[in-house]
């Protein structure tokens, strides 16, 4: 539905005044719209944002969270415009060009010498990368 809700309601009310719709139908349409709206425009809470941050392995400080959540919702509001587009029976495009079956022969190539492979390592020991102790996230 491409129309902003306020305008839609006004239109519907006007239509009712002009006798175009029965009141049963208008209530049905309005309820349906409100339900749809609820699904579409669910605002992200700070908990939602913190959960996404954990999945992303990013920290958000307490003094940042409000601002981040607000910006997030602002952007998502723009993104929600996608719901105005009817995509029924439309196939998704994951690749810009219809290329398929790109394969390489099973042939070995020279690997990197270890000193080059590890030259950028923040911490290395005995030819291994070293990391802090493993805990489950």
């Amino acid at each position: 539905m491409a129309m902003p809700p306020a305008r839609l309601v006004v239109l519907l009310v006007q239509s009712t005044l002009h006798g175009h719709f029965s009141s049963g139908i208008i209530i049905f349409i309005m309820v349906k719209y409100v339900l749809l709206r609820k699904v579409k425009r669910m605002k992200l809470t700070r908990e939602d944002v913190l959960n996404v941050a954990l999945l992303s392995r990013l920290e958000i400080r307490d003094d940042e969270i409000e601002n981040v959540t607000r910006q997030f919702n602002d952007i998502m509001q723009h993104v929600d415009r996608l719901n105005q587009v009817n995509t029924e029976n439309v196939r998704p495009t994951a690749h810009a060009l219809p290329v398929c079956n790109v394969l390489r022969p099973d042939v070995r190539q020279t690997s990197l010498p270890r000193e080059k492979a590890m030259a950028n390592a923040p911490l290395a020991e005995d030819g291994f990368f070293r990391v802090p102790k493993i805990v489950e996230g």
Binding site: R108, L112, A117
Partner: peptide, 19 residues
């Protein structure tokens, strides 16, 4: 194109792709 050979010295069968 790195080798799949088991038992090589650590971090020697590596290249930009698998790293």
């Amino acid at each position: 194109g790195c080798s799949t050979h088991f038992g090589a010295e650590q971090n020697t069968n590596v290249c930009p792709v698998c790293l």
